[in-house]
């Protein structure tokens, strides 16, 4: 039996599932290996579950999605969440630090049209997840590795270490040590290939915290390199705001 692949989306920008379409060279091979049964971004033709491998992007921000993710889980043998929204709540989790009712009243002409939860939460806060693939957006090579590993019945080779490993492996000069540039690399999950430091800018943590993180030890460096309290807070509060907040102990 050809395994059935499904792609679903919750609150998100679609960029992570687009990564699947971006696998141009491998797409035909992939289509030969799996039956793409549900992938609305690619086709409006959908097939019924159960699905062997389900990829979910996006976070849970509405009561309807909280219910929907349970149904998706029930229809999926393996559920993999892809991207910062699905694994950490995404940029929309900034609401978790604020008052959503106030936002709603200020932003929308008819706040009563808006039906939303007070928080944006990762899929893993609602259902069991078999694997979380990080990134905003996810890395194409890592996505293929996850799918390939699933097809081979093995564990994906997705290291849990920091971006520093990738910088050193590709021979990038450390932007913090040599330039005094604030960088979240030492506390950020590898996977992007350390793109930003390779272009002389600091990592901004779009893959979220690495497997072992000592964020409090990094904060004094950000200060030294010119960030005040507000800068530091904003630096940490982007796509993985809630995950870094946990690491900061706040």
């Amino acid at each position: 039996m050809t395994p059935k692949l499904a792609v679903f989306k919750l609150a998100s920008c679609d960029g992570c599932q687009l990564t699947l379409l971006d696998c141009e060279d491998e797409l035909l091979t992939l289509a030969g290996k799996v039956d793409i049964a549900h992938f609305l971004e690619a086709s409006s033709a959908v097939g019924p579950g159960p699905y062997d491998l389900t990829l979910v992007e996006g976070s849970v921000t509405t009561a309807a999605d909280a219910e929907r993710i349970r149904r998706i889980r029930a229809e999926s043998k393996h559920l993999v969440t892809i991207g910062a929204c699905a694994t950490a709540g995404g940029i929309q989790a900034l609401r978790n630090f604020a008052d959503v009712a106030e936002f709603r009243s200020v932003v929308y002409a008819r706040p009563d049209y808006i039906d939303t939860l007070a928080t944006s939460t990762p899929v893993s806060a609602h259902v069991d997840v078999d694997f979380e693939l990080r990134g905003c957006p996810i890395d194409r090579g890592q996505l293929l590795e996850v799918i390939t590993a699933f097809l081979a019945g093995r564990k994906p080779q997705i290291p849990d270490h920091s971006v520093c490993f990738a910088c050193k492996q590709r021979g990038t000069v450390c932007v913090t040590v040599a330039h005094g540039t604030p960088c979240l690399g030492p506390v950020t999950h590898a996977g992007c290939g350390a793109i930003c430091p390779a272009y002389g800018r600091g990592c901004y943590g779009c893959f979220g915290p690495a497997g072992t993180v000592n964020l409090p030890a990094l904060i004094p460096l950000l200060r030294r390199d010119g960030m005040d309290d507000r800068d530091t807070e904003r630096f940490l509060r982007t796509f993985n705001a809630t995950a870094f907040a946990k690491e900061a102990g706040s």
Binding site: C164, P186, N214
Partner: peptide, 29 residues
């Protein structure tokens, strides 16, 4: 308490030699 556990010390060390091996497959298997 101060260490980031980032691994930079070992990666720049001229004598640290440790490696890992990984086996990868492609989509065709």
């Amino acid at each position: 308490a101060r260490c980031l556990s980032c691994g930079n010390c070992t990666l720049v060390c001229p004598t640290c030699f440790c490696t890992t091996t990984e086996e990868i497959t492609d989509l065709t298997g």
